[in-house]
Amino acid sequence: MNMVLEHAAKTLSGSGLVTAFLFAGIVFYLAGLLADKLTRGRIHSSAIAIFLGLIAAYIGGLITGGEKGLADIAVFSGLGVLGGSTLRNFTLIAASYGAKMEEIKKCGIAGFLSLFVGIFTAYTTGAIVAVAFGYRDPVSVATIAAGTVTFVVGPITGQTLGASSAVIALSVAAGLIKTVFIMIMTPFVAKRVGITTPRMAMIYGGLVGSTSGVSTGLAATDPALVPYGTMIATFYSGFGCLLCPSILYQLTRMILPG
């Protein structure tokens, strides 16, 4: 019996991607079941699947203490391939199939403008929170604020400005929490704040930014909106990397002469 289990484990981890397909299928099935039985279809099954995924990641972290959630367990290593940036982006781009060019033309500018409003808002909020928690030197405040923009912008800004590694780690954490918060909250607030049209989805993508957060959140809200929100959100980190260590840091230094 042990021998069989050993071979099974070897097969599962050896054919990682195939195991990941099975895993995703099972999670999706469970999510559908829960959505029907517990919430009577009121909560989109994708939203529940995402939540189950996060719980699985938490359990994986508890077992291994690693940083890649469930993928740190050898048997589930293929999740890192299926959920990794290459395949994830490939399916994400495919998910945009069916988007209407007219919609993008019509509201692209509004979405693009909202990018800058979004980066400025996130940075300012992050900076205010950092100051409220006792950070006073402009480099640390700017790094935490940049992390609030996204977890990509935080470390890049921190490294450029020479922030301490503890502050950089903090900025990454802020960005990750933002991403997960977007994933979970989007389906719940979407109707209330009006994310029901391509136009509002684009503005939303520009305002909050995170590509993974917005695409996941919109997928759990209305899959037809995914391309519009994601398309704008994907420019957010890049512009954040451009603005945070330069203009926004200079502004911070003017206000906080550390």
């Binding site: 999706f28 996060l54 890649k68 999740l79 299926l82 959920g83 998910a95 992390g147």
Partner: peptide, 27 residues
């Protein structure tokens, strides 16, 4: 796409995120 998203969420560093400092969570 949704399966890939599920796989992605299952590979997030949720444990460290939840145990990270209050500043990060609030921000």
């Amino acid at each position: 796409f949704i399966p890939a998203v599920i796989a992605m969420t299952a590979t997030q560093d949720v444990l460290h995120m939840l145990s990270s400092s209050v500043v990060a969570i609030v921000a």
